[in-house]
Amino acid sequence: MTVSTPGPGERADQELRAALKRVATTLKAAGVSFALAGGYASWARGGPEPVHDADFVLVEEDVPRALQALAHAGLRVEHPPEDWLEKVYDGDALVDLIFRPADRPVTREQLADADELRVDSVLMPVQPATEILASKMLALSEHSCDLARLFPHARALREQVDWPALRREVKQWPFARAFLELCDDLDIPPKEETS
């Protein structure tokens, strides 16, 4: 019998998932409210698996307690120059702790809207699909406008998204409006959701 050794990409996926689970279980044990966000939240709901990092959202006032718990659990904490997130590493696997995505502070109400889902064997709160797409769309800018990376998420989550609410949430951002126009042209939102 031949035993296959995981390749570099598969090892990185396993390391990211292990880091994601370690951060989630540590935050849960510390009583810190959070939600899985970004690419792994999309993955937990049926989207493509990310390859770069894992993202969690939490309210800003809980960040010091979260960092203390994660450092005590043996993760490496780094304070980036950006003023809207903190970074922790489990080995080489990066986890972002985001408290102000796209200049919108995370609120306790947003965290309360998260669904408890089993993510790679660990039960944790996961952002709703509408919020996942809104955050990705509001992150688009003149310097980072790769719409192609958003389409797999929009297609995979289309039945879970509240499209009218998404449109209201991002209507002020021209890049998001352009992406929604393309989604409409490509028949991504269910017909009854297109407005």
Rank of each mutant, 00 (worst) to 15 (best):
A19T: 10
A19G: 11
L20R: 14
L20G: 09
K21S: 14
K21E: 11
R22A: 15
V23T: 12
T25A: 13
T25S: 13
T25H: 05
T25D: 09
T26F: 07
T26P: 06
A29V: 06
A29W: 07
A30T: 09
G31M: 04
G31H: 01
F34G: 03
F34S: 05
A35D: 08
L36R: 02
L36E: 03
S42M: 04
W43G: 00
A44S: 11
A44C: 09
G47V: 07
E49V: 12
E49R: 13
D53Y: 09
D53M: 12
D53G: 12
D55N: 06
D55R: 02
D55W: 02
F56Y: 11
F56N: 00
V57S: 10
L58D: 02
L58G: 01
V59Y: 05
V59C: 05
E60I: 05
E60D: 13
E61A: 12
E61R: 15
E61C: 08
E61I: 07
D62V: 02
D62K: 05
V63N: 03
R65E: 04
R65F: 08
A69G: 11
L70Q: 10
A71H: 13
A73F: 09
A73E: 06
G74F: 03
L75S: 03
R76Y: 13
R76P: 05
V77E: 02
V77A: 04
E78K: 10
H79W: 09
H79N: 10
H79V: 12
P81F: 07
D83H: 15
W84R: 09
W84S: 05
W84L: 06
L85C: 10
E86K: 13
E86Q: 13
K87S: 12
Y89H: 15
Y89Q: 12
G91S: 01
G91D: 05
G91E: 02
D92M: 05
A93C: 10
A93M: 09
L94C: 02
L94M: 14
V95M: 06
D96P: 11
D96N: 15
L97W: 00
F99H: 12
F99G: 07
R100I: 11
P101S: 06
A102P: 08
D103N: 15
D103T: 08
D103F: 11
R104E: 15
P105N: 11
P105H: 07
V106H: 03
R108W: 12
E109K: 14
Q110K: 11
Q110V: 01
L111N: 07
A112S: 14
A112H: 14
A112Q: 13
D113Y: 02
D113G: 14
D115R: 13
L117P: 05
R118Q: 14
R118G: 08
V119H: 01
D120Y: 13
S121R: 15
L123P: 13
L123H: 08
M124P: 08
M124V: 02
Q127C: 04
P128W: 05
P128R: 07
T130K: 10
T130C: 06
T130W: 08
I132K: 00
L133F: 07
L133G: 03
A134I: 00
A134D: 00
A134N: 00
A134K: 04
